[in-house]
Amino acid sequence: MKITTFNRSFFLIYLGLIISISGCKITLVPSYDAQIKEQIESTSKEIDRFYLTMMDKTTNSEGGRSYEQFREGYINIEVELLSLLKKNRVRPLNTHSTRIGEITLELWRKYKQEHKEDNAIPDGLIKLNMLAMSDLFYAMLIAEKGKELAENPPAN
C-alpha cells in the first residue's frame, strides 16, 4: 500500500515537471516577421532610387534641386518610415528595432529640413545622406535577421 502511494506521488511529481517544462521557451527577441523585412527592403530601395535620381537627373543650377522638386518624394518616404516605426512599436520585446526606426526617422527629417532651408543640395551631401540611410537600413535588416536566427535551431 505504502509502495503504491509512493509510486503515485513520484509519477505525479514527474508529470508536473513535464507539464511545467513542456512549451517552456525563453523569449528575448520578438518573433520574426517576413512582412516587416520586406517593407525594410522596399523602403531602402525607394530611398536609394530617390537619392540616385536626385544626383543623376538634376543639378543645382536653375533650381533643379530646389526642395519643391523633391517634396513629394520626401513625404512618401517619411510615410513608409512612420509605418515601419508604428509596426515596430506595437511588437513586444522590440525596443532595439524601435530605436533604430526612431533614429532613422529623426535623421530623415533632419536631412529633409536641411534641403528645405538650403533649397539646394550638392552631390557630396546627397552621397553622404544616402550612405547614412543605407547603413541605418542595414542595421534594421541585421536586427530582423537576429529575430529569424532566434527561431532556427542551432546547427549540430
Partner: peptide, 13 residues
Amino acid sequence: HAIAVISKAIAQR
C-alpha cells in the same frame, strides 16, 4: 541596437 538583437537571439537559441 542591431548587434544587441543578434546577441540576444543567439542567447535565446
